[in-house]
Design a binder for these strands. Structure first.
Length: 308
DNA sequence: AAGACGAAAGTGGTTGA
DNA sequence: TCAACAACTTTCGTCTT
């Protein structure tokens, strides 16, 4: 399996060598000379899950401008310059310019407006923070922002923490765009626990009548396949299997990730790129047992015979 | 030694009275 | 609001490679 690694310009505290490497798959800093593992959390320095196409890789580039945070924290007195320059006088990239534009807009509103608007600004900052940790594309943030605004308009925030609602909106946005992230993944970076987020999510979707399809296991395929270093052949075979399974109603009521994992497991064996149940279950964040159950079910109902 | 398998008991979320 | 329920997890022992 090809590893995603990056050389770090820093000496290893243990052996002093300069052979430190950042392993994106595991989220660790590893010394290739003595084997020391330095840190298991550094996701603020880069995406903690591997980018599997150039589009997503590009998203890493956007971390350059964390001005969002400071502005909201320092609050209302801060003034954003009209020129599109950052603190060093350099031009701000077109991508960030849109963001700055939005900030200016908020700025204007905030000065003359009430708590609800401040709430919004805080939520947007939080939204940006979480989604940049998760390397989520801009379109998803926008979607989440739209949902959040609606929630504010409908007075749905009262009694719920801003953070939990923000996370819930983000979760919903991911699902709407077919870029599923689990609640766990979001909860990991939010400042609220999973339960809270789930509760807010359910509440919001109900109140706003959001039509969100049940998660489609196929959406998980590219991510899982790439994390396992599987070829596209395996991936498309897994998708085939899933499509069959969906037709037969084998996916309803089942955890989509379990089904996805099982399909991938079968496909990997069929195509001679076998992965263990353990490996598959790990990336799908389910247990081996679940992979097993789903896989037996698929095998039976689809009449697939997988030897060995 | 590692992977696969399955039984049994436990957990959290959904549903319907 | 509460209990029943299904899906999923945890744990552990056994079998296979």
């Amino acid at each position: 399996m090809p590893e995603q690694e990056e050389q770090i310009q820093k000496a290893c505290p243990e052996c002093g060598s300069l052979k430190l490497v950042r392993d994106f798959d595991r989220g660790e800093l590893i010394c290739t000379s003595c084997g020391l593992v330095l840190k298991d959390k550094f996701y603020d320095l880069g995406p903690e899950w591997r980018a599997f196409d150039s589009d997503q890789r590009d998203k890493r580039g956007r971390t350059g401008a964390p001005m969002t945070f400071t502005i909201h924290d320092k609050g209302l007195s801060t003034i954003i310059d009209w020129r599109n320059k950052d603190v060093h006088g350099r031009d701000i990239s077109p991508t960030n310019r849109a963001q700055i534009y939005r900030l200016r807009k908020w700025q204007r509103r905030i000065r003359v407006s009430d708590a609800a608007e401040r709430n919004l600004a805080f939520a947007m900052a939080e939204l940006d923070r979480i989604s940049s940790h998760l390397s989520l594309p801009r379109s998803i943030r926008e979607q989440a922002a739209v949902t959040y605004r609606k929630a504010v308009e409908e007075n749905l925030i009262r009694g719920r923490s801003i953070e939990s609602v923000t996370a819930a909106c983000l979760y919903g946005a991911c699902r709407m765009r077919g870029v599923p992230r689990t609640l766990d993944e979001i909860a990991e970076h939010a400042r609220v626990d999973k339960k809270e987020i789930g509760r807010s999510y359910r509440f919001i979707t109900k109140e706003l009548n959001l039509k969100i399809n049940p998660t489609n296991p196929i959406d998980y395929m590219p991510r899982f396949a790439s994390e396992l270093g599987l070829s596209t052949a395996v991936q498309s075979r897994a998708i085939e299997i899933l499509e069959e399974a969906i037709k037969l109603g084998l996916t309803s009521g089942r955890g989509p990730m379990g089904v996805a994992a099982a399909a991938l497991y079968i496909a990997s064996i069929e195509k001679g790129e076998r992965r263990t149940q353990r490996e598959v279950s790990e990336v799908a964040k389910v247990t081996e047992v679940t992979v097993r159950n789903r896989y037996k079910e698929l095998q039976e109902k689809l009449g697939l015979n997988v030897d060995v």
